[in-house]
Computed example of a mutant assay.
Amino acid sequence: MPTQTEIELQAATFRRLQKHLMEDRTDVQNIEMMNLAGFCRNCLSRWYAEAAAEKGIEIGKDDARELFYGMTMAEWKANYQTDATSDQREAFKTAFEENVGKE
């Protein structure tokens, strides 16, 4: 079982990752992250909701994304998302299936 200090360090690390993705590297597209790393900002927001559910706290998909992104998904898309290339979309199909599963 992690100590309180370890939990605090893990939480601080998560907050720094979140800041990096949401403020420092808004240029990096979710599709690029998924294709290269097997996860993206949406995965992180989903994992947040899953962790909450384990504690009996229900957070919907849109609410979890807004909590992680610090804005609505529509605002993120309007401000930062660019159109994916056909190659990116094709690679995403494989990456999504391998890392998230079929919907």
Results as ranks from 00 to 15, higher is better:
Pro2Val: 08
Gln4Tyr: 04
Ile7Asn: 01
Glu8Asp: 08
Gln10Met: 09
Thr13Phe: 13
Phe14Pro: 00
Phe14Cys: 06
Arg16Ala: 07
Lys19Tyr: 14
Lys19Glu: 09
His20Leu: 15
Glu23Ser: 14
Glu23Val: 15
Glu23Met: 13
Thr26Val: 15
Val28Met: 15
Gln29Ile: 11
Glu32Asp: 10
Met34Ser: 07
Leu36Asp: 15
Gly38Val: 09
Gly38Phe: 09
Phe39Arg: 03
Cys40Ser: 15
Cys40Tyr: 03
Cys40Asn: 14
Cys40Arg: 04
Arg41Pro: 02
Arg41Val: 09
Asn42Gly: 14
Leu44Ala: 10
Ser45Ile: 01
Arg46Gly: 07
Tyr48Cys: 02
Tyr48Gln: 05
Glu50Phe: 03
Glu50Lys: 06
Ala51Thr: 08
Ala52Gln: 10
Glu54Ser: 08
Glu54Phe: 06
Glu54Met: 12
Glu54Ile: 02
Gly56Asn: 09
Glu58Asp: 11
Ile59Leu: 08
Lys61Thr: 12
Asp63Leu: 11
Glu66Cys: 07
Leu67Gln: 13
Phe68Gly: 01
Met71Thr: 02
Met71Asn: 01
Met73Leu: 13
Met73His: 05
Ala74Val: 11
Ala74Ser: 11
Lys77Thr: 07
Lys77Ala: 04
Asn79Cys: 08
Asn79His: 02
Asn79Met: 08
Tyr80Ile: 02
Ser86Leu: 14
Gln88Thr: 05
Lys93Ala: 13
Ala95Trp: 08
Phe96Glu: 09
Glu97His: 07
Glu97Gln: 10
Glu97Val: 10
Lys102His: 11
Glu103Met: 10
